[in-house]
Design a protein around this nucleic acid. Sequence first.
DNA 1: AATAAAGTTATCCGATAGTGCAACTTTACG
DNA 2: CGTAAAGTTGCACTATCGGATAACTTTATT
Lengths: 101, 101
Amino acid sequence: MKTKDNSLKTLEQFKDEQYGKRGTSKREELETGYENFKIGALIHEARIKKGMTQEQLAIKAGTTKSYISKIENNIKEVRFTTLQKIVELGLGGHIELSIKL
Amino acid sequence: MKTKDNSLKTLEQFKDEQYGKRGTSKREELETGYENFKIGALIHEARIKKGMTQEQLAIKAGTTKSYISKIENNIKEVRFTTLQKIVELGLGGHIELSIKL
DNA sequence: AATAAAGTTATCCGATAGTGCAACTTTACG
DNA sequence: CGTAAAGTTGCACTATCGGATAACTTTATT
């Protein structure tokens, strides 16, 4: 459970909660890395917007709720096709991706 | 060199761009994006637009040209963070990704 | 035609994505 | 409060990504 009132978090709030409390210095990694956190935060945000639980999303996407949790918290890396599977099958949406040069 | 159609530069054209004129880059407006896409084609197109070889891209991105080739031909799956690494470090660009519900 | 650059393909193998189960914690709600 | 739903975490396991190297084919240039 993320919020008490069903409202969406900002990305900063999400980062604070997920990475600020552990004591591990993953925070610096967030700022200088490849912005991996965006994936988990994006999926989380999209799922909440659809009003789905992790388990509902997992079943639709053909995976497990534990895996969804790990992805949303950036514990596991995601293969790109897996990301597409979760978004398209699970959330009923689609990914728009562009490479800006 | 893959084909002799217009999408690929000759070696001389490439050298002109890379080592010749170091003036203002006119590539900033380049963008490669799809909704229904094969990730390999996306990377390939972006690489050609930057006038880079697979090997140059590989070195910049911290990988090998054989891996770049396999990705462009959709032989290997790509981890999302690897995709970011290739685009940001290798191509000097960035990914814009959004989930449409 | 010869040579070199660019790209493809093959193979090995350590690292890790992803599965599945289960126990645990946190939150929601009567 | 007590219960259940939602979410988190851990562990063992399998599939495969991805690094490294090298041989090979295709294309470009002289």
